[in-house]
């Protein structure tokens, strides 16, 4: 007689080990996220909360005042992201390629020096750059003057046409260490054998980088792009630290994060409106979700992975 199949056992150890992470994550991330989505469907009338369905979203996209600010913030956010993609990531890759060159001396010193800004607080970075670029006490005008380029100087952070670009570049300066480190790690994991085989075939130097290394680190570049996207569309700290909640001059540095903060918590005489704030937060969530999905289904799945 064959033994009776035992009923599947509950794997208690799995539940026990997952529980702390799941509980903490639910309490600090999942619950607030869904509560924010829920809040965006309400509004406050005479001290009581009233359900209004999608009315808040209609106001955000339909009302001229709200939609102007929203589209302005979104456009600024895209510019902020574009500068990171065009400057931060290519520079990060180039730095990693240089650092991984076996003949470079003091490589670990450069690596640390370039990475250090990443661990600084936004407040320090914002404040330090505000001082550096200040027309009154800053060293930027003096340094330009010393090389005879004083006429190139402008109070960048105070000019509508330059402020956002200047702040994006400050952010690039702060975070260029992250793509550099990730790419550096990816470059180191390329087996020597492949490079030697290529060398035998006559592919060396720059062409080895373009033809061998770059295709092999493409998956890492993809991950960096998506990390940059999420971080940029959630950005808030640097703009707030440097320009304040009004994101001046004339809202030219206003991104979704500062717009949401101003609406949610209020500013000066403007009282906070948690419901419109949640509406903006929900819109941000949707934008990031769409962006990440596009990447996952459009790019990630088609990417080749090489096994060595």
């Amino acid at each position: 007689m064959a033994p009776k199949p035992r009923p599947p056992r509950i794997k208690w150890h799995v539940i026990v080990f997952l529980a702390p992470a799941v509980l903490v994550y639910t309490a600090v991330m999942i619950y607030p996220l869904f509560n924010t989505l829920r809040l965006s469907l309400f509004t406050e009338v005479d001290q009581t909360r009233v359900f209004v369905g999608l009315q808040n979203f209609r106001t955000l996209f339909g009302d001229a005042f709200w939609s102007d600010h929203f589209w302005n913030a979104l456009a600024n956010n895209f510019w902020f992201f574009l500068i990171h993609m065009l400057v931060q990531n290519p520079v990060g890759i180039a730095l990693a390629a240089i650092l991984s060159h076996p003949k470079l001396r003091f490589a670990s010193f450069y690596r640390s020096a370039i990475f250090i800004p990443t661990i600084l607080s936004f407040v320090i970075v914002g404040f330090a750059w505000k001082l550096i670029l200040s027309p009154i006490w800053g060293i930027a005008p003096g340094m330009l003057d010393a090389v005879g380029l004083k006429q190139l100087y402008a109070p960048w952070l105070g000019k509508q046409e330059y402020a956002l670009t200047a702040l994006s570049l400050v952010s690039v300066w702060q975070f260029v260490g992250i793509p550099m480190m990730l790419i550096y790690a990816a470059l180191l994991s390329i087996p020597e054998g492949i490079l030697e085989a290529a060398e035998v075939e006559g592919i060396t130097g720059l062409s080895a980088f373009w033809k061998i290394k770059l295709p092999l680190i493409l998956p890492s570049i993809g991950i960096i792009s998506i990390l940059t996207f999420v971080a940029n569309f959630n950005a808030f700290d640097l703009i707030y630290a440097a320009q304040g909640a009004l994101a001046g001059p004339d809202f030219s540095t206003d991104i979704l994060g500062t717009f949401m903060y101003r609406t949610f918590f209020g500013f000066q005489l403007q009282l906070g409106d948690p419901h419109m704030g949640s509406t903006i937060a929900s819109a941000m969530f949707a934008i990031i979700l769409v962006g990440v999905c596009l990447y996952l289904f459009g790019i990630q799945r088609r990417m080749h992975r090489y096994q060595f």
Partner: peptide, 15 residues
């Protein structure tokens, strides 16, 4: 002053 566009409130107080 020069560059008043980027001059902050504490800057003005100090000047």
């Amino acid at each position: 002053g020069d560059g008043y566009e980027a001059q902050t409130y504490p800057d003005s107080q100090n000047i």
